[in-house]
Design a protein around this nucleic acid. Structure first.
Lengths: 202, 202
DNA sequence: AACTTTATTAACCATTTAGTTAAATCATGT
DNA sequence: ACATGATTTAACTAAATGGTTAATAAAGTT
């Protein structure tokens, strides 16, 4: 990090602080301290807290979205996509543990801003995956299910544990180590559950 | 609300504001305005923002926890419990849409406080349900599964849509009306998915 | 070298915000 | 009616916080 520019240092620090504390909880001084620069620099480069937050939100979102899009628009089968999504998502989030709760929180708190963001950037977009599911239903490979519900199941099973990390640990009475082990198991468990629920045997 | 005491009015207003905006985003003045009383009253009755927040958190948590506990400690079968949990939870949350994200957010932001809270109040506690699952596995009614994973699946499938409301709507490209319809469908869909994944046919 | 632009700092400003105080008002019992 | 304690209000304070400014340093440019 020694050779990175001031602007990069600020953005990195802002990502750290905003992801952990959210827009409302973050302090400009704290971000400046984290970046080891003068607070005025934040405004010099990013003008306002809101703008800096938007830069962080975009950066975070654009790091997160491709994880979904790349997999869902490949030419793999539905089953393969389910498996690779769960595996990649869990690995990704283990490395970036604050991203799910940050995105969920800020989207809930700023619906207009988020809605605008979704429209402008159009990502992530699971609709190709939806289409593919519909096609495989028609072919008889999959049972007759609602593609949106199936995708929601996939997201729910994969993302909830991370979004609600603290609550999950408290409810199940497990520690961080135990949690990590369970998440590794879930890389197998979730695809099995999803696939067996949509596979057409008869 | 006309005949409620000042303390009650404050608590109700605080519940509204805190659940929507979280501890960091809420303002004492806004709570006072919502309750239509003088801001000094907040301190007269609750001493500080932190104390008021704790009262709100407790109230919310103690409203939420029994929804889980009552069902999980009844004498119904595992299958019946899965069905009634999903049905009751979704109905409950439709009436209290801010509770899941509020609890998840604040527990993530104050792990020590939350951990202490879990220990002191010891609820909600799905461990009786865990035991029952283990017993039914031994009896051969259920497949050999990890009870904790199965409960996590149940929570994930049920709660995620509400916790990540904004994100889910954006991803699936649906509006509030569509969302409600999907949630009603899920009252059937989730139990079917869970039960078929744990039922031992062989 | 002279000059211009860009980057950085310390000190400051204005507003917001949680919290306080002291006086006023209300309710209740005597 | 009056005394007493609880409740309520307006005005205030101190600290925090986002943002600005003016001076200075560094890096180009001619």
């Amino acid at each position: 990090m020694k050779d990175s520019t001031t602007e990069q240092k600020i953005l990195e620090a802002a990502i750290n602080i905003f992801q952990k504390k959210g827009m409302a909880g973050a302090r400009m001084q704290e971000i400046a301290d984290e970046a080891r620069i003068n607070k005025a620099m934040l405004h010099y480069y990013f003008r306002s807290k809101q703008r800096l937050f938007e830069a962080v939100f975009m950066q975070t979102f654009l790091k997160f979205a491709p994880q979904i899009n790349e997999i869902f628009s490949s030419d793999a089968t539905v089953f393969e996509k389910v498996r690779s999504f769960v595996d990649r998502y869990i690995s990704f989030v283990q490395e970036n543990p604050y991203i799910p709760s940050f995105l969920i929180q800020e989207i809930n708190n700023n619906p207009e801003f988020a809605h605008n963001f979704f429209n402008t950037h159009g990502v992530p977009d699971p609709s190709p995956f939806e289409k593919q599911i519909t096609e495989e239903i028609e072919k008889g490979v999959l049972k007759t299910i609602d593609p949106k519900q199936m995708i929601l199941n996939l997201f729910s099973l994969t993302a909830f544990s991370f979004a609600a990390n603290g609550l999950v640990k408290g409810l199940l009475n497990i520690d961080e180590e135990n949690f990590k082990m369970m998440m590794e198991e879930r890389k197998k468990l979730i695809p099995e559950l999803i696939i067996s629920s949509i596979k057409n045997y008869g």
